[in-house]
Amino acid sequence: MIKRFDSVETSKLVEGNGYFYYPNKYTMFQSKYRGVIKGPKGTVKYFPVKSAGSFSHVLINHLDETDLQIDPMLADYIFDVDTGRKIKIPK
């Protein structure tokens, strides 16, 4: 086993006809930094890492396309990474 995910607590979110189960608390055991070392008891391949996290403010079916846009007026400059051009935003 190289990963294990446990839901410590789950919540059911209901919105209209939609519903979604999510872990509001979870623990994760992972084997990060893959590699092989030779120890006195044999070969060790995995380095376990334990972490915990939580999710909050989970919402479903609440967004529209305008919620997914960054307002350019929050910036002073626009930098086009592909062309290398930098344009000052008139305000």
Binding site: G16, N17, Y19, Y21, S56, H57, V58, I60, N61
Partner: peptide, 15 residues
């Protein structure tokens, strides 16, 4: 059935 009724999703995650 669960994902068929969801068209948008938002959450925050704390580290």
């Amino acid at each position: 059935k669960m994902f068929g009724s969801i068209n948008a999703f938002e959450y925050s995650s704390e580290r």
